[in-house]
Design a protein around this nucleic acid. Sequence first.
RNA 1: GCUGGCGUAGCUCAACGGUAGAGCACCUGAUUUGUAAUCAGGCGGUUGCGGGUUCGAAUCCCAUCGCCAGCUCCA
Length: 702
Amino acid sequence: MRQRGRVDLDLVERAAGQPRGDAARVTLHRAQEHGEQRDRQQRGHDRGPDQGSQHAGSAGARHARRDCSTRAPRTSTVPVAPAWRARRRFATILPPMDHDEQPRDDLYRIRHSLAHVLAQAVLQLRPGSTLGFGPPIDDGFYYDFILSAPLSEEDFPELEKRMKHIIKQGQAFERDELPAAEALRRIEGMNEPYKRQYAEELIQKRGLASLSFYKNGSFLDMCEGPHVENTRKIPEGCFKLRSIAGAYWRGDSRNAMMTRIYAWAYASKEELEAKVKAYHEALARDHKKLGRELEIFVIDEDIGKGLPLWLPNGTVLRDELEKLAKELEFKAGYVRVATPHLTKADLYYKTGHLPYYASHMYPVMELREQVDGESVVKESYYLKPMNCPHHHRIFASRKRSYRELPLRLAEYGQVYRFEDGGALSGLLRVRGMCMNDAHIYCTEEQAHAEFLAVMELHRQCYEILGLSDYYMRFSTWDPTDPKGKEKYIDDPEGWERAQSIVRDAMERSGVRFVEGKGEAAFYGPKIDVQFRTVTGREETASTNQLDFGVGRRLGLTYVGSDNKEHTPYIIHRAPLGTHERFIAFLIEHYAGAFPTWLAPVQVRVITVADRFDEYGSKLVASLRERFVRAELDTSTDTLNKKVRNAVTEKIPNVLVVGEREQQDGTVTLRRYGEPRQETMAFAAFEARLHAAIATRSRGLPA
RNA sequence: GCUGGCGUAGCUCAACGGUAGAGCACCUGAUUUGUAAUCAGGCGGUUGCGGGUUCGAAUCCCAUCGCCAGCUCCA
């Protein structure tokens, strides 16, 4: 069960991507416009306060916060986001739309009206059911019910038939606006307890003086509209019931479980069909499917839920990403550290994780000994759910001077979080994950440049990977949050300063972002990078947080030029998130066809007949000599079959060699996805290949 | 965690109260092939696990494990 205790640790933070349970407000900053938006969107469960889940970004984010230590070269070589301003690659997917922001256009009306039509059909089929919410959503609409008898997808044809019938009847949507008291009386008569509860909230908490109702045919609903004037305005064949699932009333597991029916709906039959088709095609990129087919990872029941086994192909991806991170971080002045997977329980009491975060950690390991015939606990250990406390201890390993700041400690650290079983999903949400983690300890004066440098590091990573389908979310502190003082560091001035540092850095970088008020980490504001999976779920890939509170809490200090002790700012960041989530993301991004530098098998040599295998072996040996992942296909398959296999495995470079090539010392290159093949000297191919790998380019430069 | 659906060979699936099958993969043999599946044979499942109903269970029931989807995109 989920507990709702609040921890104030970073962990607590919802991990990235997590949906936050509270209604947070988000402001969209696009160039100059500001729009109000809310980020609900997440479809994950609310992992809000309680759950810290997630890795990747989230993880990064959340975890990170704790203390550490070590010294880094006090270089001043940090590149300060220069290039960033000019590029426009960020944020090409649209952030979630706020309820109050959605355009009430025709499509909105159609979807909203269809939700009422669905409800009417459901009430016909299951009289006595009660209603929850039924809003339009990004790709259609849904409606929540407490059904008088269960429905399943098998009932969809019947429901759709009834819906079509209702539409054909040409029911008019009639709006009725009643003063609060009268509205409540009417709702009372409707026998809709959830609607009533919400109506009371609207009147009492939001101060609405009146409520509106819409009636079409036999169906009456409290609803703000707008709707189409008549069901005939709903285009024929523009919707399709999609799925049925449970959903808690108001997304809160303490509330009743309702049944939610989702449907797709678009402005025309053609558009609907195109979208549904695109959706099904997108499923072919699902990382769970490709992960199995391309032998990247498996999740073995005998090992445990959420604990992936990385197969050789997947391990190549991890190694290459780590190599990339090490190179970029080295250039950005980071130093690497390594810390153990286990930690004494005491540390987590100091950081504040225990006992609040305990439900998201694997149970304690206790070393016992016999004392007077009784078994007593001598020492207790936990698997670490984040790397920050370890890094903070490294920072604290000796006295620190301002002269060695900023100190940037980096580690691809393995952490374990006990996520809810129902939340686990392939590599996207796991219980064991390896984070591209780092903590930067710096002075307040350095924080701005360091944060910019972190954003620049993000830009570099994303540019190399060709990622552009994401948006950034700036999560800030909400001074009016009723739980503020227990949840967040109580230091309004500190928040203001930290937020202005981040906001300014973001604005200077020119990156588009949305603002989520009330979504900050407990110790500071953060920037999360949000993306969507092929199935449309939003997740956090990367996270960056400016922590002004934990250093103080843990007594981390450095000696300043004034010979006094000061508390460092700490930036927690994870541009590549966790291997688990990030690779899931990359598999879907590339549809399994990785660029040469990342590909598990970079070159497959196929001979026309086995008498050319010796020549093929020489090619492979030459390539492997310089660390190219090349291999010779020695199977007895036909040439056609070998080519087919290489294509199926999405190998980026296939070399076909036979009599001609052997004689001329050439190779015939067949690039994945390119119909044209090309014969060239082997030396020329090698040079191009090495160039492609060295520059991590997507193609093979000429 | 909760709601619902689903677990048949390594993979994708069929059999839906009456002897558990196919394709691919794998193994063996033949084939030595110039760009997306050569031919033949073979191996492979106590139908996730455990109970129950039944003359008989992969099919029905219960429990359990696992997987998938959903769990505010608020009237």
